[in-house]
Simulated scan of single mutants.
Amino acid sequence: MLPFLIFAIVLSQGKGAFLLTGFNTMSQKEQEQYDEKALAKFMGKVMYGYCFCLLLCALGELLFIQWLLVIGLSLFVVLTIFVLVYTNTGNRFKE
């Protein structure tokens, strides 16, 4: 969870977009079409959400609470689906 948290802090400051897989594989010309800072901040918020999901899963495992693990995994899946739909519709991060 700690690497996710560090990554979230870096991204939420609007830095580190080059670490985003889909963004860094684009050509320089394509990258210039996107608001790099807004994309990084959004992905930072997403990473905070993933950290929360992992925290719930870890607590569920440590405290032997099955429903906490299920909620953590369910939120992880829901967050992933939301991010895929949100980022791929509406050209939200294009300048």
Results as ranks from 00 to 15, higher is better:
residue 94 K to Y: 05
residue 32 E to D: 14
residue 87 T to C: 02
residue 63 L to G: 00
residue 39 L to S: 11
residue 92 R to C: 08
residue 94 K to V: 05
residue 89 T to C: 01
residue 25 T to K: 04
residue 73 L to C: 06
residue 60 G to L: 07
residue 39 L to A: 11
residue 62 L to V: 05
residue 74 S to N: 06
residue 70 V to P: 00
residue 14 G to N: 03
residue 45 K to R: 08
residue 81 I to N: 04
residue 23 F to V: 00
residue 16 G to Y: 12
residue 23 F to D: 00
residue 44 G to I: 12
residue 62 L to D: 01
residue 40 A to E: 07
residue 16 G to W: 13
residue 58 A to D: 06
residue 36 E to P: 04
residue 38 A to G: 08
residue 68 L to P: 00
residue 52 F to N: 03
residue 22 G to N: 04
residue 77 V to G: 14
residue 11 L to F: 13
residue 29 K to G: 02
residue 28 Q to C: 01
residue 54 L to S: 06
residue 64 F to A: 00
residue 62 L to P: 01
residue 83 V to C: 04
residue 12 S to R: 10
residue 34 Y to D: 00
residue 26 M to E: 00
residue 95 E to H: 10
residue 58 A to P: 06
residue 17 A to Y: 13
residue 78 V to H: 10
residue 49 G to I: 07
residue 46 V to C: 12
residue 79 L to G: 13
residue 80 T to W: 15
residue 23 F to W: 02
residue 26 M to W: 03
residue 40 A to T: 08
residue 64 F to Q: 01
residue 83 V to F: 09
residue 23 F to R: 00
residue 63 L to M: 01
residue 56 L to R: 07
residue 46 V to G: 08
residue 32 E to H: 07
residue 39 L to T: 12
residue 43 M to F: 15
residue 78 V to E: 04
residue 24 N to R: 06
residue 41 K to A: 08
residue 55 L to G: 15
residue 88 N to P: 01
residue 64 F to K: 01
residue 82 F to R: 11
residue 36 E to K: 10
residue 48 Y to F: 13
residue 69 L to Y: 09
residue 65 I to C: 01
residue 9 I to K: 07
residue 16 G to N: 11
residue 81 I to Y: 09
residue 53 C to N: 12
residue 29 K to W: 09
residue 49 G to W: 10
residue 30 E to S: 11
residue 79 L to T: 12
residue 26 M to G: 01
residue 25 T to S: 02
residue 59 L to V: 06
residue 76 F to W: 14
residue 20 L to N: 11
residue 74 S to H: 10
residue 33 Q to Y: 06
residue 55 L to N: 11
residue 20 L to I: 15
residue 90 G to L: 09
residue 59 L to E: 01
residue 89 T to N: 02
residue 92 R to H: 15
residue 32 E to M: 11
residue 14 G to V: 06
residue 82 F to P: 08
residue 55 L to M: 12
residue 24 N to Q: 03
residue 24 N to F: 02
residue 67 W to A: 03
residue 45 K to Q: 06
residue 49 G to N: 04
residue 36 E to T: 04
residue 28 Q to V: 12
residue 21 T to R: 02
residue 42 F to R: 04
residue 81 I to Q: 03
residue 10 V to W: 09
residue 44 G to K: 11
residue 23 F to N: 00
residue 12 S to A: 12
residue 89 T to P: 02
residue 86 Y to M: 02
residue 54 L to N: 11
residue 53 C to L: 13
residue 51 C to D: 09
residue 46 V to M: 12
residue 19 L to R: 13
residue 38 A to P: 09
residue 19 L to Q: 15
residue 30 E to C: 07
residue 91 N to D: 14
residue 52 F to D: 02
residue 81 I to S: 04
residue 20 L to Q: 08
residue 88 N to H: 07
residue 45 K to V: 07
residue 87 T to L: 01
residue 76 F to E: 10
residue 55 L to E: 11
residue 69 L to N: 09
